[in-house]
Design a binder for these strands. Structure first.
Lengths: 343, 343
DNA sequence: CTGTTAGCGCCTTCAA
DNA sequence: TTGAAGGCGCTAACAG
């Protein structure tokens, strides 16, 4: 490692005081152009670069955002989704001269420990919590000490004043369902996850809304609730296909669930979309398996906006806005057979 | 934010000097048990937690590892692979009390800028570079200043003394090919990426090795080189399927390429595995599309070992070991038709 | 406009 | 075994 060059060296070479060098380098308006030039020249000649940790200590801010994902990373609904989310955060952070630290924990317990350590150790200026669950114990922790944080995903209703960014999940399924209904489907099965996830609650609401609007009565037998795994979805959908409840289309609320659904349909010897039309959310494998409709949640935007919002909170520039909804887009597949009433 | 409690407060409450409090808290052996207890008690009562940035400055180390991915994150061979890699790094880092910072850049240019900023700003103690490309300009940067770093992926041959962790890529394809050959296939197409990636070079070597061992002559027409995208793979494989070169099995060297390959086969109206047997690497969609054989690269282990190696380098505990190969595992599908000579 | 002084919070010699 | 003092590198308040 080269001998580190400090601002002292720069000051000496430019023949000014350390504080002057600092002011010059940081663009303080009161520094004369002449000295500024001298300092900048000296810094360049020495290839000076500020010691970021020292700066953090002096300024009282780390310029770092922590990301905490309180569920097992394997359980993340889609790896691609998650990576895009992070990429979005990164870009917003980078643009504002922040860095990103990643804290991977497996459950709420660990999340609390981690949060406490970050908050009290002041190793980040703010926190982004992805995949928040209903267990809000760790939110308490944060609110208690008024540490800036933003959720990606809607918190439970009773959590007021919590900043979050989320898809408009009611719209997500509403749009997809409306589309399927337009194709002629009146009996659309709805594959969703546990109601402890707010996004599942919202998407079910959208599902009902679309039915209602179309004058189709809601049949709770068509709602297939399973956990968010491929295997459980597979079993549940298989059971439904073998049951007496009939449906001509099926809509799954996550990529993982869409995969499980497709598998169940195929193993039953049915064709997609001839025998049954499939809709999904956040399904990125359309190249391998086209489906009639899917919804793009724009994870990049979710991440970008979350980081941006957090940075505003940190700088107290937030206009008391506590929620941002990112509109989702309907992605319509190539071959959309209008339902002919069979099935 | 609560008023931050510093070590001064702890010292005052324990009625000792600051330095004594520090020594006690950091487990220095010369502190008497009595004072240690007093200090620990005081710290607990005040809910003291050290200011990590201040500690970093004083100790001259950040306890943070930077991760740099010098290719577009969309181009990462598999999101799942990448996430598992990160998870492995995280666990190794966490175990050793390090944190992880993620730097996402889109190309080598940006990588260089980012690296310089991290190294000179001393905002990390070491760097892990994933998906290293042949362009080694940024490696120069690092070697020049002797900053600890580790690659995930083999560097070019001429780069000696560079620490890296990688799969044994020769074995990867060797194993898979040997398996396919055992099933009776003598003409196996090999879908691979540009030769500028070391892993492609190595895997081609393994392919040849397996053929050679089985006494099958190498036919370069069976090597389908395309870029690492689904679409290019699709086109290349489609062309091959329509061409006059015949093969009964096909082996693709990444998840993305496996997807493109499968798609091409299906669009041609062929059945997998009845008409053509497919092998892949790092293919995680076997649930949706079973294939005869795939290779698990154990990305978690790759990440874990890379981070561990880096930490050892940082602490000068490395026994001059510069390379770690992680053995891959063959994953054999359920239905493995022994090739009957047709096709 | 520039330089002096005083921290940021912690750790580490070095005396006592 | 403890404590006083100095320093990590940078920034900010205040004189001048």
């Amino acid at each position: 490692m080269d001998l580190p060059v400090t601002i002292k060296d720069v000051a000496r070479r430019a023949k000014v005081a350390v504080s002057t060098a600092s002011s010059a380098l940081n663009g303080k308006p009161y520094v004369s152009e002449k000295t500024r030039l001298k300092v900048i020249k000296a810094a360049a000649e020495l290839d000076y670069y500020p010691h970021l940790v020292a700066r953090s200590l002096a300024r009282g801010q780390t310029k770092d955002l922590g990301i905490i994902n309180p569920i097992p990373i394997e359980a993340v609904f889609s790896s691609k989704f998650f990576l895009q989310l992070i990429k979005g955060m990164h870009d917003a952070a980078f643009k504002n001269s922040y860095t990103l630290s990643l804290y991977i924990v497996n459950n709420e317990e660990e999340a609390i420990t981690q949060i406490r350590s970050i908050v009290k150790g002041r190793s980040a200026d703010g926190l982004i919590i992805t995949n928040p669950t209903i267990k809000t114990s760790y939110l308490m922790e944060l609110k208690k000490c008024s540490f800036p944080f933003v959720l990606v995903g809607r918190p439970p209703e009773d959590e007021r004043e919590i900043c979050y960014v989320d898809s408009d999940n009611v719209m997500v399924s509403y749009m997809a369902l409306r589309y399927l209904i337009k194709l002629g489907h009146t009996r659309v099965a709805f594959v969703t996850g546990p109601n402890k996830f707010t996004f599942c609650i919202d998407r079910l609401r959208g599902y009902k809304l679309a039915l209602e609007e179309a004058g189709i009565s809601y049949d709770e037998n068509l709602v297939l609730e399973c956990d968010l795994s491929e295997i459980d979805t597979y079993c549940t959908v298989s059971r439904a296909l073998n049951g007496k409840i009939k449906f001509s289309a099926i809509f799954a609320t996550s990529e993982i669930q869409t995969i499980g659904t497709i598998k169940a349909i195929k193993d039953k010897g049915l064709d997609i979309p001839a025998d049954i039309v499939v809709g999904g959310v956040d399904f990125s494998l359309t190249y391998l398996q086209p489906i009639t409709v899917t919804v793009d949640l724009h994870p990049y935007d979710l991440g970008y906006l979350a980081a941006e919002m957090l940075i505003k909170n940190i700088n107290n520039e937030n206009s008391r806005k506590t929620k941002i909804l990112v509109p989702a887009d309907l992605i319509v597949g190539d071959s959309i057979p209008v339902y002919n009433g069979k099935n």
